[in-house]
Each structure stands twice: as C-alpha cells, then as structure tokens.
Design a binder for these strands. Structure first.
Lengths: 234, 234
DNA sequence: GTATTAATATGATTTATATCATAACTTAAT
DNA sequence: ATTAAGTTATGATATAAATCATATTAATAC
C-alpha cells in the first residue's frame, strides 16, 4: 500500500472490494485506485446536494452519511444511512439525472471518490460488476417498496420500534448493548416521518416499558423481541 | 410477423422494442421472440404473488397491471401501475429475491413472457441493454424516494391531488378530458395510503371546487393547474 | 332481467398525532 | 469557564384523518 498516511482508510476500501468491487480485474482495481481520492469529511459537511449534478460516486471508508430528501416545508425525510463499505451517488451517475437526495455527514467520515466516467466505463466493460450493481439497485428497490408500505400503513409507534431494530441490524450494538449510531430525536423523527415531540414521547414510553434505556442520546436496546413485537416485525 | 393471430399484441411489443429493448441485436431480438409467450390475462387475474419466486419477466403489450404490496392488516399499498410497454418482474429476476410485490390485472391485458435465464443472459451480454435497464432501475429508485417523502410529509388532500395529476401524466386524458384509467375509490385510497372514505370525501370536495367532474368511476380533470396547486406540485 | 355483492356516499364519533408553549438540559462556540 | 444555541422533555390544545354506522347506487353473477 502506497498510501501509508491514510492506510487505514484505504484498507477499509479494500475490504469493500470484497463486495461491490469484488469482481473487478486487477487492472480495473488499479484503475479505481489511480482515480481514487480518499478525503476526510467533518461531521455536518455535505457530500452532494439534492438538485445538483454529481460528478462521481463515493465509496465510504469510514463514518456515517445520512441520505435525505427535502420536502415542501423544508423538512428532511431521511431515506437511508450509508456506512463503511457503501457507495453513494451511483443512481444519479448512471441515470444521468440530478441528485434526488442530499448526502450529509453525521459522523466524521472518510470517502473515496470515483469519477462518473470511470464508474460508467466499469459498468459497461465488466459484466460481473454491472450485475452486482444491478443487484444492489434491485435490493434497494425492494427496500423502498417496504418503506413505502410501512410509512403508509404502520402507526408512528410501530414505525419507531421498527426503525430501532433496523438501526441495530445495520450498525449493531456494542458490548453494552448500545446502538452504535447516535441520532438526535429530530433525525429519528425524520426517518419515521413524524414530529420530533412524538418521537420523544414514544422513546419515553419504550423506556417505561423496559424496551430500551436512554443515556443522553445513546440508546440501549434491552428487549429486542419486545421491540420487534411492537414494530410488527416478522 | 409470423404471429398473425395475435399480431396486434406483438406489434405493441415491437413498439416497446424501441425503448428498453431498443439496443438489442437482431439475433437477440429473435432470441426474445423465440422465447416470447404472449398471453391474454383477464381483469382480476394475478400475474405473480408477493413472496413467490418469479420464473421470468413480463412485457406488457396491452392493458393495465397494478403492482402492490400487502401490509400487516392485509391492506394493499399500490406501488405503481404498469401499462403498455412496461416490464414487470425484472427486480426479482435480477436480484434473485422473491417477489416483494403482487401484480394484478385491472384491465384485460396481454403480456409477453421472457424467461429469467434469457433475461439475465441478455443483461450480461449486451452492455447497452444492461445500461438501459440500469437506468430504468435508477429512475424507479428516484421515484421511490419521492414517493416516500410525499407519503411522509404531504396531507392526504395534497397526495390525492398529486395522484390524479400523476395518473393524467401516465395514462393521459381522452378527448373529453377523462382519465383513461378507471379505479375504485378503494384503489385510489391504496395509492394515497389513506382510508377509502377519505378519498370519497376529498373527491367530492374537489368536485365542489370545480377541479374535477365525477361520472360514476370516471374522473374528468377540469382544472389541471388547480389540482397542481392543491397537490403542491412544482 | 333479477338477486346478490361490492362500491359509493354521508354523518357522527373517536383516535392518533401534530402543533403550540414553556422549561430544563446538553452541546457547541468562544 | 461562560454564554449561546440547540435539543430534549412535558403539558395542553388543535387538527387531520381513521373508524363506525347506515343508506344508496352500481357492478357482477346467474
């Protein structure tokens, strides 16, 4: 590894090469490495804005990015979180459309940039990469369908319980059973699609019901099955 | 055209060849034609069920299919409608996942079947086809993000107005300005994500406000701009 | 054409949740 | 360390929309 000063971040991207980039040839591998521009991003910085044209994709080597869309009153609707190993921006790059979401750093991150041209060339020349990427898009489509149905049909209580379980699944619990992602109540509300106060009240209820414990913004999940039951998760 | 008895339906698929299949070679074109199985489906019949494994994709040569997901109380959440020229089922085929939606015929239809193997082979061997399909998936992803944000943030009134405009855009108005798709109030409710009675009431209001006219189930849109304003569409 | 079923319409009531208001606590900035 | 800004918490009130109930109309089945 030539990138000795940021070796840890590039190692992380190499790990990602075992997933979406796992079928690249060594030459293609180098092609990305050559173009790769691994940069640190501070909490709060914006990777790309909704409505802008994106010049390339980003591979996340560390940190957490929230992907959200802004609605009519300027309220955020968080669509998903991207973490170590995920790619963001591929939708706009491949479709040639403007970004339909904004990507903002919620935990100091390190991202590797892949120019759009390179990405598209890879897609076109490596059938396995294109298949992997297609499968990723299809998986995301399936998740979106579920998200739509849940927002439309589940109560806010059910939704919040479900979100906590999803956060556990995506970011895992540490040794003390705390979620390893820290969100404001407003951010949780922006995932659930409800008012901040409603989230605060429900978290308080979940705490009373011994489903979770609250330590400042840190959330300890104490009864996973209880939460699954509340969230109607099967 | 050798399919003389169902020539009109195959003509329609040929027209579709000008879009998602527009970059197939003549050989690949024939490959699909050979495998193609163009069948009539009566209103009410189910093309594929949520939870099942799909053996191939369907290209719609005529008619209308509703694509929906069933929620926890057995309620439908309609995700989209597919019409002449659209493909359904590609998500599951390419991702290898079970169908996450159900496809049901709401107007007598004619569908051409493309076996999954064939479809995947086409994806792998024709870079232009794979690119077109990828762009279709990315477009759908973008639409899903908007759908999620709208359901979460817009009022039912706004949503219904917006849905009417979307139906107009997708299915167009006939010479008398009637929507060329006929849905029950329940189905409209299942798109908006609300109760049937709420849709009935709002349609009645829209009628009073001279935004639409109601003739049985047929809806005439009389004030497109008025509806856009109500729906907060820019 | 008739009977049955499904859909539509309307009114009343209930419920979930948003909004408003205020105080207390935590985090960020200097 | 102090101050300012942001977040969290709680209570009260308002609102949108769901649910329940019933009657009417339209579509479907035979």
């Amino acid at each position: 590894m030539k990138h000795s000063p940021s070796m840890s971040s590039c190692d992380s991207c190499s790990n990602k090469f075992e997933t979406i980039f796992k079928h690249l040839t060594q030459e293609e591998h180098d092609m990305i490495s050559l173009d790769k521009n691994c940069e640190p991003y501070k909490k709060g910085s914006v990777i790309y804005h909704e409505g802008n044209r994106i010049s390339g994709c980003y591979c996340i080597s560390s940190g957490i990015i929230k992907i959200y869309k802004t609605g009519i009153d300027g309220k955020e609707q968080i669509i998903t979180f991207a973490k170590n190993g995920d790619i963001i921006g591929f939708r706009s790059v491949l479709s040639g459309e403007l970004a339909c979401t904004t990507a903002k750093v919620i935990e100091d991150s390190s991202l590797c940039f892949i120019p759009g041209d390179t990405f598209i060339q890879l897609f076109k020349q490596n059938r396995e990469f294109s298949m992997d990427l297609m499968q990723l898009a299809c998986k995301e489509l399936g998740e979106a369908n579920a998200y739509i149905t849940d927002i439309a049909q589940k109560t806010v209580r059910e939704r919040l319980a479900e979100i906590l379980i999803l956060l556990k699944d995506n970011f895992h619990l540490d040794n003390e059973q705390f979620l390893q992602i820290t969100l404001t109540r407003e951010e949780l509300a922006n995932i659930v699609g409800t008012a901040t106060e409603s989230v605060i009240r429900l978290l308080s209820e979940f705490k009373s019901d011994k489903l979770i414990e609250l330590h400042g913004r840190r959330i300890k999940i104490t009864d996973i099955n209880g939460l699954k039951k509340v969230g109607n998760i099967f």
